[in-house]
Design a protein around this nucleic acid. Structure first.
Length: 814
DNA sequence: TAGAGTGAATTTTTT
DNA sequence: ATTCACTCTA
């Protein structure tokens, strides 16, 4: 990414920079908006710009528009209204493919030109870092590089910026660590162990999720302690309190804390809130349907109330309730549905013309989403013509499904109908990507998997980052314990337990206890020596950091002095070769970061904490492939990742009940509706061609499973479908029976397939006792649905009852 | 303490 | 199927 758009450039325009000597207390949150240096990129829209800008254009960048009116060229009436609306809160209900990104960027450009806003007054919140980068770049294309002074970022990045700047108010240092989901889970596991909770009854994983939900609803440990009623909640409350205390002790915030704490900060310190209200006069939020309570409250705090010391900022939110797919992590569709009530003067504009897909694809999507209850109907339309019908394919196995996809892509590329870079393959869960990879490698198709096992989640990367984290924040327990014996240095479980006991006894942190090994009882001399050596190692590394070395240098020192790299290099395990490569890549990332900072002509080379923040919040090492030379590569990703993207050719794979919709949503209407919205998102990503495929047989848990067709398939009207194959023509297990294409006539998904014809659906009632082939004896708790759709919740003595689709579950009544 | 060997659980989706 | 956690032995 161009250095002109990097974080440092943003920081340069901030009233109070992140780094440098701490300001005097009265300056704690910097100058007022008047303090935004208005000599920087000063001037009106068409005026000549500063020398920095000349350099920018010499690098080949497009010249900005010279006339604000030109921003409206090529926009339809609704879009223009959305771009130019002024005066009050604005909700833009943007249907799929309605050009919402364009409208947002043009609106920002409009604010900066026709409305005379200063870029420093704009805060635009996007869902992903990638979207932020693109938006910044596109606005710069329209109005020039002064766009770099805007805050365009995710909720989390914005909050971290605010928190770092205001950390003194909250009594923690600005170099706090950021805990990702894995760290949180680990910490919660430690807490549960210390509370001696039975992991069967109180699984740390579910506690972790519940705490996350509480934070998303802004319920802090004290609030929750007050409202916990039953024994379970009391225990949860205890764990939450301790978890939060441990985070504090480690000077760390988890993902949910980042938002919650920012909200608390703004609520507790009115002058801080006022500062940001004065500063951000324009607040824009994309993907508003995916905001949760904490984010919603944050927006309200930043906008301010009418009649307050500062006029409320101008708020513009964009979203589509039909594309809300993150309820599982706390998003509330309520926020977008109630916008007009929340912000009484609000105007609502609808973008209903679709510029992306053919009418066929659009109609199919509309038919599917129409099945959801309680939604405001939309009238998406397009004038781009009917287009081809949707191709359906029923494979015998998931391998055949992948093979069909590969063959079809081959056919399309040979015929010149599409290039690999124009094709995307979507699936419900990451695990489904593997089979496609195998087949694509074999047939030699270029592809890229987006998401999945991410770079920063690999073991070796996390190990090395753990060292950096400990160096940046010595009190940070979770990474400290991770590296204590990595690479192996003779500090085992027992030694660790002794240190922990010392920490508990002396009421000090684990990190401090480690430094006071000599006081630990019962530690073998050998172990104690190992710990001392470890302390010395950390001390050495710390001197490297204190000598002012940048992240890349520190990283190199870690790799060398810990022996981590040496251990991998001398290993015979071929996997370790990849690990070394990954670490080299990490080193490259660090170096790039360092240079980026150096170029930003700021004294600070970028601290370790900055680097770690970037790593925690911008885990973007696998990017969505650009349409590069030579036709590009096929993109593989989950449906969630696909949000906001579009492709000429889309394969929607694994269209099976139990896969998509996912097993765990089957009994629950709400979750099923979310799955349906996910299907809607998937369908509407396609511009010209859409394929839907499923497999009759799919192995999961190493066991073959029969899956019925996804209910979403049946929701697509038959007239839009072109079934290339509807299932095995012969039930006999001959390998590769010749395929006879049956067109048109068969019902969606081909009912002729995949069912054990002879097994009647067991009829059950609550209270019945049953046996299950794998789960054993159980008792029926509840039954839903009838006939083929019947599902039962059955208690097999596990933590919670299992939900089984009776048509397929191997259950027998006793 | 480390490594081998066994058994259980894993599969939503992500900032 | 694969991975992770736990137990047992050297």
């Amino acid at each position: 990414m161009s250095g002109l758009f990097d974080d440092q450039a943003l920081a340069d325009l901030d009233p109070t920079p992140d780094e440098g000597p701490p300001p005097e207390p009265e300056d704690a949150h910097g100058a007022d908006p008047e303090g935004i240096p208005d000599d920087l990129f000063a001037g009106t829209f068409a005026e000549p710009r500063a020398a920095e800008e000349d350099a920018y254009y010499r690098n080949g960048a497009r010249k900005p528009l010279t006339d604000p009116a030109a921003l409206l060229d090529g926009l339809n009436e609704q879009q223009r209204a959305a771009v130019t609306h002024s005066g009050g809160p604005l909700l833009i209900v943007a249907g799929a493919g309605s050009g919402k990104t364009r409208v947002l960027t043009h609106r920002i450009a409009h604010l900066l030109s026709a409305r005379g806003a200063h870029p420093g007054q704009i805060l635009a919140i996007t869902f992903t870092n990638k979207a932020a980068g693109e938006m910044r770049e596109r606005v710069a294309e329209l109005v020039g590089p002064r766009a770099q002074a805007m805050w365009v970022m995710t909720f989390h990045s914005a909050c971290v910026r605010i928190l770092r700047r205001e950390s003194r108010q909250l009594g923690f240092t600005s170099s706090f660590s950021i805990y990702d989901a894995a760290d949180s889970k680990r910490l919660m596991a430690l807490v549960c162990r210390d509370l001696e909770l039975d992991p069967k009854r109180f699984p740390p994983k579910s506690f972790s999720a519940k705490v996350s939900n509480l934070k998303n609803e802004l319920i802090d440990p004290e609030d929750f302690a007050g409202q916990a009623t039953d024994g379970f909640e009391k225990t949860l409350s205890e764990a939450y309190t301790m978890y939060q205390a441990r985070l504090r002790e480690a000077n760390a915030l988890d993902f949910d804390d980042i938002i919650m704490t920012t909200v608390h900060l703004l609520q507790a310190f009115p002058d801080v809130a006022e500062h940001y209200r004065r500063r951000f006069r324009h607040l824009l939020v994309d993907e508003y349907q995916d905001t949760n309570i904490a984010q919603y409250t944050l927006i309200r705090e930043l906008v301010g109330e009418p009649g307050g010391a500062v006029e409320p900022a101008e708020l513009c939110v964009v979203g589509d309730a039909d594309q809300s797919i993150y309820a599982f992590r706390g998003a509330t569709i309520r926020n977008i549905l109630q916008f007009e009530q929340d912000f009484p003067q609000a105007a609502t504009l609808l973008l209903e013309q679709n510029y992306r897909s053919t009418q066929t694809i659009l109609s199919a999507a509309n038919a599917v989403i129409a099945r959801n209850e309680d939604r405001r109907p939309k009238h998406l339309w397009t004038n781009s013509g009917g287009g081809a019908r949707i191709t359906g394919y029923v494979a015998d196995t998931e391998h055949d499904e992948a093979q069909f996809v590969a063959d079809e892509i081959d056919r399309l590329t040979d015929a010149g109908d599409a290039r690999p870079g124009e094709v995307a393959i979507f699936y419900r869960t990451n695990a489904q990507s593997r089979i496609f990879e195998e087949v694509f490698i074999r047939v030699g198709l270029p592809y890229k998997v987006v998401g999945g096992v991410r770079f920063y989640e690999r073991r070796e990367v996390r190990d090395v980052l753990a060292y950096l984290r400990v160096l940046a924040n010595p009190e940070d327990t979770v990474p400290l314990r991770r590296i204590l014996n990595v690479p192996k240095r003779g500090i085992g479980d027992r030694a660790e337990a002794m240190i922990e006991a010392l920490a508990l006894r002396e009421r000090i942190s684990f990190a401090q206890a480690l430094r006071r090994v000599d006081e630990a009882y019962g530690m073998a001399a050998r172990s104690a020596n190992a710990v001392r050596r470890f302390n010395v190692l950390l001390e050495e590394l710390r001197t490297v950091v204190e000598s002012g070395a940048g992240p890349a240098t520190v990283l190199e020192a870690v790799l060398e002095r810990t022996g981590y790299l040496a251990e991998l290099q001398s290993s015979t395990d071929p996997q370790d070769e990849t690990r070394v490569e990954n670490l080299q890549e990490l080193a490259a990332v660090a170096l790039e970061f360092e240079q980026e900072r150096a170029n930003a002509e700021d004294e600070s080379p970028g601290t370790l904490a900055d680097f770690l923040e970037r790593v925690a919040l911008v885990a973007d090492s696998d990017e969505i492939p650009d349409e590069e030379d030579e036709g590009g590569v096929i993109t593989l990703m989950t449906l969630h990742t696909a949000k906001g993207l579009e492709f000429p050719v889309v394969f929607l794979t694994g269209m099976e009940d139990g896969v998509f919709p996912h097993m765990r949503s089957l009994g629950k209407t709400k979750e099923l509706e979310e799955e349906r919205r996910l299907a809607y998102v998937g369908i509407t990503r396609a511009r010209q061609r859409l394929y839907v495929t499923r497999s009759v047989l799919r192995s999961a848990w190493g066991q073959p499973q029969h899956n019925p067709p996804s209910r979403f398939l049946e929701e697509v009207p038959e007239e839009f479908m072109d079934w290339r194959r509807t299932g095995p023509t012969v039930r006999a297990p001959e390998p590769k029976a010749p395929v006879v294409a049956r067109r048109g006539g068969a019902p969606a998904g081909g009912f002729a397939t995949g069912r054990k014809p002879d097994r009647p659906v067991v009829s059950l009632a609550p209270g019945d006792r049953v046996t299950h082939d794998t789960f054993g004896m159980g008792r029926v708790v509840a039954v839903q649905g009838e006939g083929d759709r019947a599902e039962a919740s059955i208690d097999f003595g596990g933590e919670k009852p299992k939900r089984l689709l009776l048509r397929y579950a191997p259950v027998e009544k006793l």
